[in-house]
């Protein structure tokens, strides 16, 4: 396990690797720009998109959906570290603050 991993696991989610987050934000920004361009192209392609509300809705829906998958993919590493490697996954109930929380060994092997 390299230092970077160790740091992020033990430090909690305050210490995301900033570089990666920055890159991901830039990617999201370009995603928006691309998106605008894509919908522009698709809108121009169907002259008078007002006459085809279905195409309008479909295009937005599919584009948003596909990009949502991409964004979900960007969270993969965080989710892996946070949700999978965490020693115990709760069903959703947060424990009361500071009570009976034992330090668990996070090192798998």
């Amino acid at each position: 396990m390299n230092n970077l991993e160790a740091k992020t696991i033990s430090g909690g989610f305050q210490q995301f690797s900033f570089r990666k987050v920055l890159f991901q934000l830039i990617l999201i920004f370009f995603g928006f720009a691309f998106l605008f361009f894509i919908t522009l192209i698709k809108a121009r392609g169907t002259a008078g998109i007002a006459f085809e509300p279905f195409l309008f809705v479909y295009t937005i829906f599919v584009t948003a959906f596909q990009i949502s998958r991409l964004i979900a993919a960007m969270f993969y590493e965080n989710a892996y570290r946070g949700s999978v490697l965490a020693p115990r996954a709760y069903n959703g109930a947060l424990p009361a603050k500071g009570k009976n929380i034992q330090k668990k060994n996070t090192n798998p092997l």
């Binding site: 033990s10 989610f13 959703g92």
Partner: peptide, 23 residues
């Protein structure tokens, strides 16, 4: 760390929804 797991997942879900809505 212990409730970080779910917290992260919730955070992720919220962030995800917000981004998609903005999109």
């Amino acid at each position: 760390c212990e409730y970080m797991a779910d917290f992260n997942l919730k955070m992720i879900k919220i962030f995800f929804l917000v981004v998609i809505a903005m999109l």
